[in-house]
């Protein structure tokens, strides 16, 4: 499953638990406009770590806090890419 699909399906699951209707999920949608509080975003990050094995917030050297859904997905895609590069170099 692509990272984008995983992020969106986890997001939908959390919104469903919180009985929240999500607006159309476009790349320029501001994360905080999803109606999810920081607890919900923290849960999203924890579940993504379990499913993708990735936590770019903790792994990256530069502190970065994504503003839009597109930023958020790219943050994960970039982390996945550099992990793949690292594992190839390690071989």
């Amino acid at each position: 499953m692509s990272i984008k699909i995983t992020v969106i399906s986890q997001l939908q699951q959390i919104a469903e638990n919180e009985k929240k209707n999500l607006p159309p999920l476009t790349d320029d949608l501001v994360l905080l406009d999803l109606g999810l509080d920081s607890l919900a975003i923290a849960i999203l990050v924890a579940r993504l770590e379990e499913t993708l094995g990735l936590d770019p917030f903790t792994e990256s050297d530069d502190a970065f806090y994504p503003v839009t859904l597109g930023d958020f997905i790219r943050f994960y895609e970039n982390a996945a890419q550099s992990r793949d590069v690292d594992s190839r170099q390690a071989r």
């Binding site: 923290a42 990050v45 924890a46 936590d55 917030f57």
Partner: peptide, 12 residues
């Protein structure tokens, strides 16, 4: 406790 980069900790 489980570490969280967003809320410091989460419940696990």
């Amino acid at each position: 406790s489980r570490r969280s980069p967003i809320t410091g900790s989460l419940v696990a």
